[in-house]
């Protein structure tokens, strides 16, 4: 009884200490990186389906590098490597760059595929009304492509929530790093790491719920 009381107390006492960096680091880091990454992804996808040869080459190179190297290595290059080249970045800023570039590279393929999945007749219908390329894209194509890309984009989103734990390696005091510190003090790694895993699980569960809502909302007017 003594032991389980102590464990319970540990869980309760540490809960807020672990959750707090989750709220002030993990969630904002995820949201900001995902938003920037999504913008990069849309721009890269549009370039990939265009005739802009040079930009296409550059963006293909970018996707190739990011997808072909480990995220942790990229984070290390940006935070520990770049200072040797004279670029020193705040740890949080360095993480945002690394995560955004990652989301941008992976999700650009998702968005490209989603845009290409929209029937050519939709472009032509918009064109025939005299709409400009960007009007057709924004008002006709992207709303339909959004629906197709929601599930894979949420995959990336949920993946990013968990990947933010890698920022612990470059001194960002997010949830995982705080947990590591408490574990080192209390010698209860099993309980504490399970506790932080549970909090990640809760964050991702909320995102899954949001995904279902988003899919429901976007399926209006479209056959399932």
């Amino acid at each position: 009884m003594q032991i389980s009381d102590r464990i319970l107390e540990l869980i309760i006492n540490s809960f807020w200490t672990i959750l707090k960096p989750g709220l002030i680091y993990t969630i904002p880091l995820t949201l900001i990186s995902f938003m920037i990454g999504l913008i990069i992804a849309i721009i890269v996808a549009l370039i990939q389906i265009s005739n802009l040869r040079i930009l296409k080459g550059i963006t293909s190179f970018y996707v190739w590098i990011i997808r072909g190297t480990p995220l942790l290595v990229q984070i290390f290059i940006i935070f520990y490597g770049l200072p040797s080249a004279g670029v020193t970045l705040e740890p949080l800023f360095a993480s945002v760059i690394a995560f955004s570039l990652n989301v941008g590279a992976y999700s650009s393929e998702t968005i490209r595929a989603a845009i290409l999945s929209i029937h050519k007749g939709q472009w032509e219908a918009g064109d025939s009304l005299g709409m400009t390329y960007f009007q057709v894209l924004r008002r006709i194509i992207l709303p339909q492509a959004a629906k197709v890309s929601i599930p894979p984009l949420f995959n990336a989103f949920i993946g990013l929530v968990k990947d933010t734990s890698l920022a612990a390696n470059i001194t960002v005091a997010e949830m995982f790093m705080v947990t590591q510190r408490i574990a080192a003090k209390t010698y209860e790694p099993l309980i504490l790491y399970c506790e932080v895993a549970f909090i990640y699980l809760m964050f991702c569960t909320i995102l899954s719920k949001i995904q279902s809502k988003a899919e429901e909302k976007l399926s209006i007017g479209q056959k399932i």
Binding site: G121, E124, D127, S128, G130
Partner: peptide, 21 residues
Amino acid sequence: LTLRKKTGMVFQGFNLFPHKT
């Protein structure tokens, strides 16, 4: 665009926008 504004097109496959009423 100027020319397209003056012509209206009806397609074989309708091509209505499915996400709009």
